Amino acid sequence: MLKNGEFVKIEYDAYDENGNLFDSTRGEIAKALHKKEGPLLVVVGKHRLIKGLDIAIRSMSQGEETEFEFNEANAFGKRSKEYTKIMRMEDFARYNVAPQPGLTVHLDTEQGRIYGTIKSVSGGRVLVDFNHPLSGQKVRYKVKITEVVTVPEERLKAIGEDIGIVTSVSLKDGTATFEIQKDDSFEEKKAVIMIMTKSFMPEVKKIEVLEAKPPSKKA
């Protein structure tokens, strides 16, 4: 049995109630949604999965593969008129978004990032549906746990890999040290590493993100 806070890597294919694949860790859909193919890092109980799947994988073990079906309450929730909002055209200006029907947008709010689909644009007003596209539906997941990560240093490495960073890591006396290559997104990657490590590994007391030495050039 998996417990809250455990690190696991999973592969999955997810289907809507009509049998259409809407998410996967394989192929082009994985590249589009997750920026990579291959197993994804999940920390049990940290809301990185839909409610039903987060609960279901707790009964699984490394190497096990199974299939689950979840109702709307354990998937993406019920559709609600409360999540359909009328916004002003000006509200989108600060996001550099030109509203048009069918466009999927994300907006940063005090409650975090929310996603919506623009339904109509008329008279300077924009109707946005913030219901998840799969709300109100049953969904089906084929899942395999490829690895249960238990060693602290390997957990740190998994955090780096999850956000697409090839990095060296070390853990000594409660201090986690990451070394990553310097590029235009260095500060953004650093911030994500700090947030994920603090959230997923409370036993780490200090986090350092350093610039890695550039690879030596061959003569």
Results as ranks from 00 to 15, higher is better:
Ala75Asn: 02
Leu156Val: 08
Tyr115Thr: 15
Val151Asp: 10
Lys46Tyr: 14
His106Lys: 13
Ser135Phe: 06
Leu127Trp: 10
Lys31Tyr: 10
Glu153Trp: 05
Glu65Tyr: 06
Val143Ser: 03
Glu110Pro: 01
Glu187Cys: 03
Asp23Trp: 15
Glu110Tyr: 10
Leu49Tyr: 01
Lys217Met: 09
Glu69Lys: 01
Ile207Asp: 05
Ile163Gly: 03
Val128Glu: 08
Glu67Phe: 01
Met1Lys: 07
Val166Gly: 06
Lys189Thr: 09
Val8Leu: 08
Asp184Leu: 06
Leu49Lys: 00
Leu33Glu: 13
Glu208Asn: 13
Ser61Gln: 07
Met60Asp: 00
Glu37Asp: 01
His106Tyr: 14
Gly45Ile: 12
Ala32Ser: 15
Glu208Trp: 05
Asn71Thr: 14
Asn4Ser: 15
Pro99Ser: 04
Ala98Tyr: 15
Leu107Ala: 11
Leu103Trp: 06
Asp173Arg: 04
Glu154Tyr: 04
Thr150Trp: 01
Lys182Thr: 11
Gly124Phe: 02
Glu211Ser: 13
Ile114Gly: 10
Glu28Leu: 14
Met1Ala: 14
Leu103Phe: 13
Thr197Gly: 02
Lys81Glu: 06
Val204Asn: 05
Gly174Ile: 11
Gly160Asn: 03
Ile180Arg: 07
Asp91Met: 13
Glu67Ser: 12
Asp129Leu: 14
Glu179Asn: 11
